[in-house]
Every structure is written in C-alpha cells, then in structure tokens.
C-alpha cells in the first residue's frame, strides 16, 4: 500500500460510491440518506478506533488475553439470548463456544500451522468465536425446539423401551445438520459463488493469490472442524439440560444446574 495520505485519498474517493447510494436513495425516495451517512461515518470511526486499539493490543499478550475474554463473553451472551427457555443457556453457550474455538486454536498453534503471536491469535480467534457462536445458536435453539415440539413422538419411542440416546437420535441429527449447512455450503461453493474474507483481504493486502488460497483453505478447514464441534457440543449440552434420571426428558420445568 502507498503512503497514509494516499490511503486517505483512496478512502475519500471510495466514499463517492456512498454518494451514489445516497443519490439513488434521494431519487427513488427511499429515505435512506441519513442512515447511509450514519452507517458510513460509524464504519469509519469504529474501524479507526479498532485499528488504534489493535495496534496497542498487538504489543501486549495481557491485552490480547483480555480481548479474547471480551470476545468470548460477547459471543456467549449473544448466543445465550437465542437459547431462551433452555435452563442454564449462558453456560451451554459459553462451554460450546469456548471448547470448540479453544480446541481449534490449540490444534492450529500446537501443530505450527499459525504463529502464536497476537497479530495472528486475535483474527483467527475472532473468526472461530464468531462462527462457533452462530453454530451454537443454530444447533442449540433447534435442539430445544425439536425436544419441546416432538415430546409426544419422543415419549412414544421411549415407551417402546429404547434408550433416550436412541430415541433422540433423529432430533439430534436434524439440529446438528441444520446448524452445519451454512458452513458446508460456504465451503463447497468457495471460489464459485463466494470469495471469502481471508482470501479477499490477503489479495487486497498484496499477497499472491496462491498464498491467499492457502490461508483461506486453512481457515475453511478450521471452521469446518470447529463449527461441527460446536454444533455437537451444543446439542449434547441442551439435551443434558432436559434429560433426567430414568431415561426420560422433562421439558415443562426448568431443571436446576
């Protein structure tokens, strides 16, 4: 990239496209002009602040750890809100996101795939936490819905003398598959339909397409693993919140932790 002044000029010029959007909004009476100005301004301010913060964080392992905790906490509470009705939903979300992201991070750094330094840890952890958060919300909420909506079916299965694990198998499968489809489809269609973030970012940053593709593949594979793990952990934990002794589930009342 060129000098700072050149970059600021580039940003200013790219704002012309926002002006085009504002023009369309004005012409078509969409009344989005104010929203567009606010969105563009917020994006600039937030990203400049983020850049300044990250420069400080990159220099400190302590700040890196703190940022990871903040990211994990934000993801946990966001996901827990999707799991309303599940007893101990915050615990379910937190364990699922932390365990799946943590496992993927340990594998990536232990095998030397990425260097364990702040400028790598933060973006990689961010991608992992964001994606496992979505998988946890999708899988956990679907599992809750499957259990509560299909209680008659599940009890019909249990009454035939099968283990709870067997009786719940079709519902666990549905919940897990449902949460994995977005990641699997994104992986299948990479390069055909979508140009994913890591690839685009590296290309814009001046990296060779081959290197960008290599990094993108690592990101996709780590996401497949982490998201699958998150979906599995979330469904197991949600079932555990509803199961009770005697090979049965109780969905009408909250169970103590």
């Amino acid at each position: 990239m060129g000098s700072m002044a050149t970059d600021l000029t580039a940003i200013a010029l790219s704002l012309l496209l926002v002006v085009v959007a504002i023009g369309i909004s004005f012409r078509r009476k969409l009344h989005l002009e104010k929203e567009l100005v606010v969105a563009a301004t917020r994006a600039m301010v937030q990203l400049f602040i983020l850049a300044a913060l990250i420069r400080a964080v990159f220099a400190s392992l302590g700040l890196t750890s703190l940022l990871l905790i903040v990211m994990l906490a934000a993801a946990t509470f966001t996901s827990a809100r999707r799991l309303v009705g599940v007893p101990g939903s915050t615990w379910v979300s937190g364990v699922s996101i932390a365990a799946s992201s943590g496992f993927a991070l340990i594998v990536l750094f232990a095998l030397g795939i990425f260097e364990p330094e702040p400028r790598v840890i933060i973006p990689v952890a961010g991608i992992l936490i964001g994606n496992t958060m979505t998988a946890t919300s999708l899988a956990g909420a679907r599992m809750r819905d499957e259990l509560t909506r299909n209680l008659a079916d599940i009890e019909s299965r249990l009454a035939l003398g099968v283990r709870l694990k067997i009786a719940l198998a079709p519902y666990v499968r549905t919940a897990t598959v449902n949460s994995l489809i977005p990641t699997i489809d994104a992986t299948k269609n990479v390069g055909l339909v979508t140009l994913p973030g890591a690839f685009v970012g590296m290309m814009l940053g001046g990296a060779s397409p081959v290197l960008a593709a290599q990094v993108q593949l690592i990101v996709l594979f780590m996401l497949l693993g982490a998201v699958s793990l998150a979906a599995m952990i979330a469904t197991i934990l949600v079932v555990r919140r509803y199961r009770t002794e005697g090979e049965r589930i109780v969905v009408s009342e909250s169970l103590p932790l």
């Binding site: 008659a152 009890e155 019909s156 249990l158 009454a159 035939l160 003398g161 099968v162 283990r163 005697g246 090979e247 049965r248």
Partner: peptide
C-alpha cells in the same frame, strides 16, 4: 433398567 421396564410395561398413547 427403564428400557427393560418399558418393554415389560407397554404404553399406548391417546394420539
């Protein structure tokens, strides 16, 4: 074992 019990004591539901 609940699975053994439920084979010895079957159940038919309303629906």
């Amino acid at each position: 074992d609940p699975t053994v019990l439920r084979r010895r004591v079957g159940m038919i539901f309303q629906t």
